[in-house]
Write a protein that binds this DNA or RNA. Structure first.
Length: 275
DNA sequence: ACGAGCGCCTGTCGGC
DNA sequence: TGCCGACAGGCGCTCG
């Protein structure tokens, strides 16, 4: 499910609260329930429960596609992977199908990690250094200038789509926002990264930022049965638009496979140069 | 350094 | 209707 905009939406909902649930800031943890063992990456279940007990949520944030929940003495880190979701509901309400891990708070509310495909992971750590040290920059980092981005692209010789999907290169993009960003930048998904000019790099960076901002503005994208509440799927220009006319030129959008991922693009607006 | 293939999982959809 | 393969918003691993 989630790429940066969806994770950002979920994070800010937890932090600010919603119409149906309070903010988690200030809530104290009574206990944890682990319903699927492999969801907990570290530490072991006993240590996890013992450490969490009695800790209070101080802050909630996001780094790349990770959600960070700062507690009194530890940090709870959550990655939703493909199908994960976080829900805040009354402790008395029945568990949902595919709930994998839950936290009960003293306020009578519960945070549940629901994850159909069981790919999601939860860590409880002292600090996030080990988890985050190899991540690329956030796309909206002001230090990421067009010149710097151009340098990063030039030092690699890789098809641009798999490179953008690589979280060690740039953090936050997934399949949807990569396809949409490349379309906006008029770049073919197989274009080799070291052939981009400074102008290409600047346009790509601007396209990534605009696409992510639009995604966040629309609370992310809701597709299939997984994530609900977002509207960005109504703004897709190429993703899942196979055969539909390109919004710019009218030629049919094509679908191929790049890096084992479904890839949507306009062959006319995104011609392949320097593959 | 790079890309391909696969594993991890459950659910949905289209074709027959 | 039922079965079966393809596919799905992610990512870490091995291999060549």
């Amino acid at each position: 499910m989630p790429e940066l905009p969806e994770v950002e939406t979920i994070t800010s909902n937890l932090k600010r609260g919603t119409a149906g649930a309070p903010s988690l800031i200030g809530q104290t943890i009574l206990g944890a329930h682990i319903l699927w063992q492999k969801t907990l990456a570290e530490p072991d279940p006993e240590t996890f429960q013992a450490i969490l007990q009695g800790q209070t949520i101080q802050n909630i944030g996001r780094r790349a596609k990770y959600i960070t929940i700062n507690l009194t003495e530890s940090i709870l880190v959550i990655h939703l992977r493909m199908s994960g979701d976080l829900r805040v509901e009354p402790t008395q309400s029945p568990l949902n199908k595919h709930d994998r891990l839950t936290l009960d708070f003293d306020s009578g509310w519960r945070l549940s990690f629901n994850d159909t495909r069981k790919f999601g992971r939860v860590w409880l750590v002292r600090d996030t250094q080990n988890l985050f040290s190899s991540l690329g920059p956030e796309p909206d980092d002001p230090a990421l200038t067009p010149e710097r981005f151009h340098e990063m692209l030039k030092t690699r010789s890789r098809a641009i789509k798999p490179l953008l999907l690589d979280q060690h290169f740039l953090a936050g993009l997934g399949n949807i926002y990569t396809d949409e960003s490349l379309f906006r930048a008029n770049l073919h998904p197989l274009r080799s990264s070291d052939t981009l000019t400074l102008q290409d790099a600047a346009k790509l960076l601007e396209s990534i930022r605009a696409t992510l901002a639009l995604g966040i503005q629309n609370n992310g994208a809701s597709i299939d049965w997984v994530y609900r509440g977002g509207d960005f799927q109504n703004h897709f220009q190429v993703y899942q638009q196979t055969g539909s006319p390109c919004p710019t030129c009218g030629q049919p959008i094509q679908k191929t496979t790049v890096a084992q991922r479904g890839t949507h693009f306009c062959p006319h607006c995104q011609p392949l140069k320097g593959a």
